[in-house]
Amino acid sequence: MAPTKIRKLAKPERRAQLIETAKEILRECGADALTLGHLAERAGVSKPIAYEHFGTREGLLIALSQEIEDRHTSKLQLALAGAPKELDAVADIISSVYIKCAVDSGEEWQAISGALRGNADMIATQQQQADDYVGMIQAALGPFAKIPAEDLRLRCTGIAGAAEAIGRELIRGRTSEAAASTNLAALIVDSVNA
Protein backbone atom coordinates (compact mmCIF):
# COMPACT_ATOMS: atom_id res chain seq x y z
CA MET A 1 0.00 0.00 0.00
CA ALA A 2 1.41 3.41 -0.98
CA PRO A 3 1.93 5.98 1.80
CA THR A 4 -0.78 8.62 2.13
CA LYS A 5 0.31 12.01 0.87
CA ILE A 6 -0.27 14.77 3.42
CA ARG A 7 -2.02 17.77 1.91
CA LYS A 8 -0.01 20.96 2.12
CA LEU A 9 -2.00 23.75 3.74
CA ALA A 10 -1.98 27.38 2.67
CA LYS A 11 -0.23 29.65 5.17
CA PRO A 12 -3.46 31.02 6.78
CA GLU A 13 -4.90 27.49 7.11
CA ARG A 14 -1.64 26.22 8.62
CA ARG A 15 -1.56 29.10 11.10
CA ALA A 16 -5.16 28.37 12.12
CA GLN A 17 -4.29 24.69 12.56
CA LEU A 18 -1.27 25.59 14.69
CA ILE A 19 -3.34 27.98 16.83
CA GLU A 20 -5.97 25.28 17.44
CA THR A 21 -3.29 22.72 18.29
CA ALA A 22 -1.63 25.21 20.65
CA LYS A 23 -4.95 25.76 22.44
CA GLU A 24 -5.32 21.99 22.87
CA ILE A 25 -1.83 21.77 24.39
CA LEU A 26 -2.58 24.73 26.65
CA ARG A 27 -5.83 23.15 27.91
CA GLU A 28 -4.37 19.66 28.35
CA CYS A 29 -0.85 20.38 29.59
CA GLY A 30 -0.66 24.02 30.66
CA ALA A 31 1.43 26.93 29.44
CA ASP A 32 4.77 25.47 30.51
CA ALA A 33 4.35 22.60 28.04
CA LEU A 34 3.58 24.92 25.16
CA THR A 35 6.80 25.20 23.17
CA LEU A 36 7.25 25.56 19.44
CA GLY A 37 8.89 22.12 19.34
CA HIS A 38 5.96 20.49 21.14
CA LEU A 39 3.52 22.37 18.93
CA ALA A 40 5.28 21.24 15.75
CA GLU A 41 5.37 17.62 16.89
CA ARG A 42 1.72 17.62 17.94
CA ALA A 43 0.60 19.34 14.72
CA GLY A 44 2.63 16.96 12.55
CA VAL A 45 4.84 19.64 11.01
CA SER A 46 8.53 20.43 11.17
CA LYS A 47 9.89 22.85 13.78
CA PRO A 48 10.84 25.40 11.11
CA ILE A 49 7.18 25.71 10.13
CA ALA A 50 6.19 26.55 13.70
CA TYR A 51 9.05 29.05 13.96
CA GLU A 52 8.09 30.59 10.61
CA HIS A 53 4.59 31.34 11.90
CA PHE A 54 5.41 32.58 15.40
CA GLY A 55 9.15 33.24 15.67
CA THR A 56 9.34 32.48 19.39
CA ARG A 57 7.31 30.87 22.14
CA GLU A 58 6.35 34.37 23.25
CA GLY A 59 5.19 35.13 19.71
CA LEU A 60 2.98 32.05 19.83
CA LEU A 61 1.48 33.04 23.18
CA ILE A 62 0.82 36.58 21.94
CA ALA A 63 -0.83 35.15 18.80
CA LEU A 64 -3.05 33.00 21.04
CA SER A 65 -3.93 36.05 23.12
CA GLN A 66 -4.82 38.00 19.99
CA GLU A 67 -6.94 35.13 18.65
CA ILE A 68 -8.96 35.08 21.89
CA GLU A 69 -9.38 38.85 21.78
CA ASP A 70 -10.37 38.83 18.09
CA ARG A 71 -13.00 36.17 18.78
CA HIS A 72 -14.42 38.23 21.66
CA THR A 73 -14.42 41.42 19.57
CA SER A 74 -16.23 39.71 16.69
CA LYS A 75 -18.91 38.32 18.99
CA LEU A 76 -19.43 41.69 20.65
CA GLN A 77 -19.60 43.59 17.34
CA LEU A 78 -22.11 41.11 15.95
CA ALA A 79 -24.29 41.26 19.07
CA LEU A 80 -24.19 45.05 19.25
CA ALA A 81 -25.10 45.40 15.57
CA GLY A 82 -28.61 44.15 16.28
CA ALA A 83 -28.99 45.71 19.72
CA PRO A 84 -32.11 47.65 20.68
CA LYS A 85 -31.40 51.34 21.32
CA GLU A 86 -31.83 50.98 25.07
CA LEU A 87 -29.14 51.22 27.73
CA ASP A 88 -30.28 48.11 29.62
CA ALA A 89 -30.22 46.00 26.45
CA VAL A 90 -26.78 47.25 25.41
CA ALA A 91 -25.42 46.70 28.93
CA ASP A 92 -26.86 43.16 28.92
CA ILE A 93 -25.18 42.44 25.58
CA ILE A 94 -21.79 43.80 26.64
CA SER A 95 -22.02 41.85 29.88
CA SER A 96 -23.29 38.55 28.52
CA VAL A 97 -20.77 38.48 25.66
CA TYR A 98 -17.89 39.23 28.03
CA ILE A 99 -18.95 36.59 30.54
CA LYS A 100 -19.57 33.99 27.81
CA CYS A 101 -16.08 34.65 26.44
CA ALA A 102 -14.65 34.32 29.96
CA VAL A 103 -16.34 30.92 30.23
CA ASP A 104 -15.10 29.87 26.78
CA SER A 105 -11.48 30.96 27.09
CA GLY A 106 -10.87 32.38 30.55
CA GLU A 107 -8.55 29.63 31.74
CA GLU A 108 -6.55 29.81 28.50
CA TRP A 109 -6.32 33.58 28.82
CA GLN A 110 -5.15 33.34 32.45
CA ALA A 111 -2.45 30.81 31.49
CA ILE A 112 -1.24 32.94 28.59
CA SER A 113 -1.13 36.10 30.70
CA GLY A 114 0.71 34.31 33.48
CA ALA A 115 3.27 32.83 31.10
CA LEU A 116 4.02 36.24 29.61
CA ARG A 117 3.88 38.36 32.75
CA GLY A 118 6.46 41.11 32.36
CA ASN A 119 7.04 40.49 28.63
CA ALA A 120 7.20 43.92 26.95
CA ASP A 121 5.49 42.73 23.75
CA MET A 122 2.67 41.13 25.72
CA ILE A 123 2.23 44.24 27.84
CA ALA A 124 1.95 46.34 24.66
CA THR A 125 -0.47 43.82 23.11
CA GLN A 126 -2.66 43.74 26.22
CA GLN A 127 -2.71 47.53 26.42
CA GLN A 128 -3.78 47.79 22.78
CA GLN A 129 -6.45 45.15 23.35
CA ALA A 130 -7.71 47.02 26.42
CA ASP A 131 -7.78 50.34 24.54
CA ASP A 132 -9.69 48.75 21.66
CA TYR A 133 -12.21 47.15 24.02
CA VAL A 134 -12.73 50.40 25.93
CA GLY A 135 -13.26 52.24 22.64
CA MET A 136 -15.82 49.68 21.52
CA ILE A 137 -17.88 49.82 24.69
CA GLN A 138 -17.55 53.61 24.84
CA ALA A 139 -19.01 53.83 21.33
CA ALA A 140 -21.85 51.48 22.32
CA LEU A 141 -22.65 53.36 25.53
CA GLY A 142 -22.05 56.88 24.21
CA PRO A 143 -25.60 57.48 22.99
CA PHE A 144 -26.91 56.95 26.54
CA ALA A 145 -24.30 58.97 28.46
CA LYS A 146 -24.95 62.48 29.68
CA ILE A 147 -21.34 63.00 30.72
CA PRO A 148 -18.31 64.29 28.80
CA ALA A 149 -16.60 61.82 26.48
CA GLU A 150 -13.43 61.74 28.59
CA ASP A 151 -15.42 60.84 31.71
CA LEU A 152 -17.21 58.12 29.77
CA ARG A 153 -13.88 56.76 28.53
CA LEU A 154 -12.60 56.56 32.11
CA ARG A 155 -15.79 54.85 33.25
CA CYS A 156 -15.52 52.38 30.37
CA THR A 157 -11.94 51.70 31.47
CA GLY A 158 -13.35 50.91 34.91
CA ILE A 159 -16.04 48.70 33.36
CA ALA A 160 -13.35 46.77 31.47
CA GLY A 161 -11.42 46.25 34.72
CA ALA A 162 -14.58 45.18 36.54
CA ALA A 163 -15.44 42.77 33.73
CA GLU A 164 -12.00 41.17 34.01
CA ALA A 165 -12.28 40.88 37.80
CA ILE A 166 -15.79 39.40 37.63
CA GLY A 167 -14.62 37.00 34.92
CA ARG A 168 -11.81 35.84 37.23
CA GLU A 169 -14.32 35.26 40.02
CA LEU A 170 -16.39 33.13 37.65
CA ILE A 171 -13.38 31.12 36.48
CA ARG A 172 -12.42 30.50 40.12
CA GLY A 173 -15.92 29.12 40.77
CA ARG A 174 -16.86 31.90 43.17
CA THR A 175 -19.99 32.98 41.30
CA SER A 176 -22.36 31.69 38.65
CA GLU A 177 -22.45 32.75 35.02
CA ALA A 178 -25.90 34.31 35.54
CA ALA A 179 -24.83 36.28 38.62
CA ALA A 180 -21.63 37.44 36.91
CA SER A 181 -23.53 38.66 33.86
CA THR A 182 -26.32 40.33 35.85
CA ASN A 183 -23.96 42.18 38.16
CA LEU A 184 -21.66 43.32 35.37
CA ALA A 185 -24.68 44.65 33.45
CA ALA A 186 -25.81 46.52 36.59
CA LEU A 187 -22.34 48.06 36.96
CA ILE A 188 -22.45 49.19 33.34
CA VAL A 189 -25.88 50.81 33.72
CA ASP A 190 -24.91 52.47 37.00
CA SER A 191 -21.67 53.79 35.47
CA VAL A 192 -23.48 55.43 32.58
CA ASN A 193 -26.42 56.73 34.64
CA ALA A 194 -24.34 58.12 37.51
Results as ranks from 00 to 15, higher is better:
77 Q>D: 13
15 R>Y: 01
27 R>G: 00
2 A>D: 11
170 L>S: 11
47 K>H: 12
66 Q>T: 14
115 A>E: 10
27 R>N: 04
137 I>L: 14
14 R>L: 15
192 V>F: 08
21 T>I: 00
175 T>Y: 11
122 M>Q: 12
17 Q>A: 06
127 Q>A: 09
177 E>K: 14
77 Q>T: 11
134 V>N: 06
162 A>S: 13
142 G>Q: 15
29 C>S: 14
8 K>T: 11
135 G>F: 08
34 L>R: 04
4 T>H: 12
12 P>Y: 03
42 R>I: 00
9 L>I: 00
34 L>Y: 05
129 Q>D: 11
115 A>P: 08
141 L>E: 09
134 V>F: 04
112 I>M: 10
130 A>G: 10
186 A>D: 10
51 Y>H: 14
126 Q>S: 10
66 Q>L: 15
2 A>S: 12
183 N>W: 10
78 L>H: 11
179 A>G: 01
51 Y>R: 14
130 A>T: 15
174 R>T: 05
52 E>H: 15
139 A>W: 02
75 K>T: 04
169 E>M: 13
53 H>A: 12
98 Y>Q: 04
83 A>I: 02
111 A>I: 01
116 L>V: 13
39 L>D: 01
189 V>T: 13
183 N>R: 11
98 Y>L: 01
178 A>I: 08
57 R>L: 07
12 P>R: 05
65 S>Q: 07
124 A>C: 03
18 L>N: 00
44 G>T: 01
76 L>Q: 08
94 I>H: 09
64 L>Q: 07
165 A>N: 11
103 V>Y: 02
150 E>M: 10
55 G>R: 13
60 L>I: 09
104 D>V: 02
40 A>F: 04
19 I>L: 02
158 G>C: 05
46 S>W: 06
17 Q>T: 01
44 G>A: 02
10 A>Y: 06
159 I>F: 12
185 A>P: 12
82 G>E: 06
84 P>D: 14
162 A>P: 03
179 A>E: 08
123 I>P: 01
126 Q>C: 05
46 S>H: 11
96 S>M: 08
128 Q>W: 03
140 A>M: 06
142 G>H: 15
56 T>M: 08
188 I>Y: 12
148 P>D: 14
15 R>N: 01
153 R>G: 00
61 L>R: 03
43 A>L: 00
140 A>D: 06
69 E>G: 08
120 A>L: 09
147 I>N: 07
40 A>W: 03
40 A>M: 06
66 Q>N: 15
6 I>W: 05
166 I>R: 09
94 I>Q: 09
89 A>T: 04
66 Q>A: 15
27 R>W: 01
167 G>T: 02
188 I>V: 15
47 K>Y: 15
79 A>I: 00
39 L>A: 02
80 L>D: 07
1 M>D: 05
5 K>H: 13
34 L>F: 06
69 E>H: 14
98 Y>K: 05
109 W>K: 11
74 S>C: 05
158 G>H: 06
3 P>M: 05
143 P>K: 09
55 G>Y: 11
132 D>M: 03
150 E>C: 03
131 D>L: 10
145 A>W: 06
157 T>I: 03
42 R>H: 00
115 A>F: 12
101 C>E: 15
108 E>G: 01
120 A>N: 04
98 Y>D: 05
192 V>W: 07
121 D>E: 13
67 E>A: 14
194 A>E: 10
76 L>E: 08
16 A>P: 00
161 G>Q: 10
100 K>G: 11
187 L>G: 12
118 G>M: 09
89 A>S: 11
86 E>I: 04
153 R>H: 07
116 L>T: 14
